[in-house]
Amino acid sequence: MADCKKVTEKALLEAIGNTGPIFAPDSDGHWEKFQGSGLPRVGTVRPKRPLRDLFTPPAREIARWKKHLSQPQLEPNLPSTEHGIVWGVRPCDARALKWLDEIFLAPPHVDVHYKARRDNLLLLGLACEPNDTCNCGLFDYGPDDPTEVDLMLHPVDDGFLAVVGSEKGRQFLEGVADAADESAPALRDGPKPTWWTGFPEPAALMDAFEHKVWDELQAGCMNCGACTLYCPTCQCFTIVDEAYKNEVRRLRVIDTCQHEAFTRMAGGHNPRTKFSSRLRQRILHKFSYIPERYDDKIGCTGCGRCIELCALRRNVFADLNEIKRQISEEASCGT
């Protein structure tokens, strides 16, 4: 079987209908179950919210129990067993899931909800038209990279060219009627900034923990947290109990290291009270701690949401360049 087939929209829809409901970004860029008919119309580039929302939602109930009982009966929230299709997945978001697997699927603490979603949802990628905040080229992949999705679809005149990304995708494609073998379209290069000089060494970043550069960068950050809350690879959460009339619900809610309360401990001590220390945490976590601990992985896929949503027009890659420049200048002065 070839790795690329041409499929018609009608046949694709039929095959999807046999699998389950479609999840896709809505017009506001939020991932929702698609209610319309036909295939969802999505934009040309990644939606506002990251794909992780479908796998580890911003707020998810863990359990609930009735109030005012001497022996509260815990009702856990069980993982969804629903099978379905995710439509309009971009390569940056799919790569981010690959990273989240390291967190949520690593034994012994496997997140059952996340695992169920991963097992039951088929990722149908859609070749992307990068905008000027996209940076997939920095990570050596492009806007139509099929490796982390199940199928990568390229829209053509009367249907799609479907490039196989995984065994699951191959099986799905076998179920699509009238699919004809085609030669796979050439992979495009992803965009990257012209001024890019490469990532700083993770160890060098760690050494720069006390560097003055963090204080210099702080003026351009107000710790609003949009960069992390909309990041496809960020996964920090907090656990809260919320009281309702007759019951209490325990929720797992998204959280961000950019807010002061994130590190505030019982008793009031807070190791990260400075703006610059929180900004540093974001950069070091993604570009130093993760590569050091997880075998040269990077906690970033270059999706560019943090650049697009930043109210202060900050660019994390420009920051990395600046940090790298300052570190290397000092290294050469020191010798």
């Binding site: 900034p193 001024w195 210099e216 702080q218 003026a219 351009g220 202060l312 027009r313 900050r314 660019n315 420009a318 360049n321 600046e322």
Partner: peptide, 17 residues
Amino acid sequence: VLGYRQHPLTGEVTPVI
């Protein structure tokens, strides 16, 4: 001094100290 600059790399106007 807290002011604005055009970022030398990105060309965006950002705060600077």
